[in-house]
Design a protein around this nucleic acid. Structure first.
Lengths: 122, 122
DNA sequence: CCGCCCTTTAGGATTCATTCCTAATTTATT
DNA sequence: AATAAATTAGGAATGAATCCTAAAGGGCGG
């Protein structure tokens, strides 16, 4: 475990925000100015492959990273892109899985809405 | 309606495959060799904004386009990326909407599995 | 049909997120 | 501490998608 990876991991675990690689890079560089962008991407990929964090692909925007490892849906503001975790009763996919034969290995569910801030503006 | 846009639209409507912009570009150029890549992207964007087709963002891969306009989940092979439409009983997302206050404007649900071809190989 | 104006195109440059490359450094191992 | 293996910094490269500009198209009012 290198200092770099630890720092990146800690930053993700420290807050519930779903940050982009670039945001994590900026935050991390405040503490370790020599950190390279490529190192951030490589370690994020590594942490995802290890199952320590989750990668969230966003439509027409850079990917975000989620410290919550339990599979769960996301609530996404369609205007500003803000993301919230939706931890909900398990077995959510039961109806789908039943219909499909139980061979589902995972899912990605995004629900779109207007966040309060964006609703106010509109 | 220009010849270019019509051609792109027809290609999408002609088959259930979920093609990438690049694939559509190649197919279209067989019929119209002067067609520019940018024209394909611009028209795909236009058709999506008009609600005539749907854009499907794929993880770590170029977006794909779907001729089916009804909102519906997708079944995605986690190995080869092949996509299938899942037209299912409406109201499957009712439980979510209820929990969230009915202000959901849309959703994107991908279910991952191994397609038969990929399961054979593994 | 003709001219005019607005739209769209081709072709290529550009952007932006992400990955890749390499030599140098760090970390782990004994 | 010595050596081997893994990781890093820094920057180049990639690839999907967007943007730019001058030229071509298309459509409608006459």
């Amino acid at each position: 475990m290198t200092r770099q990876r630890q720092l990146i991991f800690d930053l993700i675990m420290a807050a519930p925000e779903h940050r982009t690689a670039e945001e994590i890079y900026d935050l991390a560089r405040a503490e370790m100015p020599s950190l390279a962008r490529g190192t951030v991407y490589r370690n994020l990929g590594l942490l995802v492959r290890e199952g320590q964090i989750r990668k969230l692909e966003m439509p027409d925007a850079p990917a975000r990273y989620d410290r919550e490892r339990r599979p769960h849906p996301h609530l996404v503001c369609e205007r500003c892109g803000k993301v919230e975790d939706l931890i909900m009763p398990d077995g959510l996919l039961r109806p789908f899985a039943l219909e499909l034969g139980e061979d589902i290995t995972g899912y990605d569910l995004k629900l779109y809405h207007l966040c309060p801030a964006c609703r106010k503006k509109a």
